[in-house]
């Protein structure tokens, strides 16, 4: 079964544990400037929204890369940056419609979410279940269940 990161912004509190976990996983540092997942605060609306790469099937970044430095991990479905191959041209950052692949000046390479080889550190660190790693075919299952619970299937007993 392939899995996807699933984000439920309603559950996010803006604690940034996910950003620290991501930075630690990839840079051995808690410095969130290096995180590949970002939590956005919409202060006046009272909303916190985590956002990262959703691993497009036909990934713009992968298609655009002139040196073939972005490859598909067939197990997780992640699009992975091969650092030794990446030349830091940043064409992928232009191609990505979502902004989730970014250049890292200190390494001269780009970075993006690689699903941590199938064990995403952000999902593990999230204390509220706002970020989960679930069956890719059923990311809507939780919401379906929630609405199903509101459906009146036996009016006679009411």
């Amino acid at each position: 079964m392939q899995k996807s990161l699933h984000i439920d912004p309603n559950k996010c509190t803006g604690c940034l544990q996910c950003e620290m976990a991501c930075a630690w996983e990839n840079h051995r540092s808690f410095t969130i400037a290096k995180s590949r997942i970002k939590v956005f605060t919409f202060h006046k609306e009272g909303r916190f929204v985590p956002y990262t790469c959703t691993q497009c099937d036909e990934a713009w970044c992968m298609t655009a890369c002139p040196v073939d430095a972005i490859r598909l991990d067939p197990v997780t479905g992640a699009k992975i940056v091969l650092e030794p191959t990446c030349v830091g041209c940043k064409v992928c950052t232009i191609a990505c419609p979502f902004g989730t692949i970014n250049y890292v000046a200190s390494t001269g390479k780009v970075q993006k979410c690689d699903l941590c080889d199938g064990e995403p550190a952000c999902a593990k660190a999230c204390p509220t279940g706002a970020i989960t790693y679930v069956d890719a075919d059923w990311t809507g299952l939780g919401k379906m269940r929630q609405w199903a619970g509101k459906t009146d299937t036996n009016p006679a007993t009411v």
């Binding site: 509190t13 803006g14 604690c15 940034l16 620290m20 009272g46 916190f48 204390p127 509220t128």
Partner: peptide
């Protein structure tokens, strides 16, 4: 509106009001 957390906080006691 919701509760909010400070940096790294897994309690999230903060109040966000409208």
């Amino acid at each position: 509106v919701t509760n909010g957390a400070c940096f790294g906080c897994t309690i999230a006691c903060g109040r966000i009001s409208r």
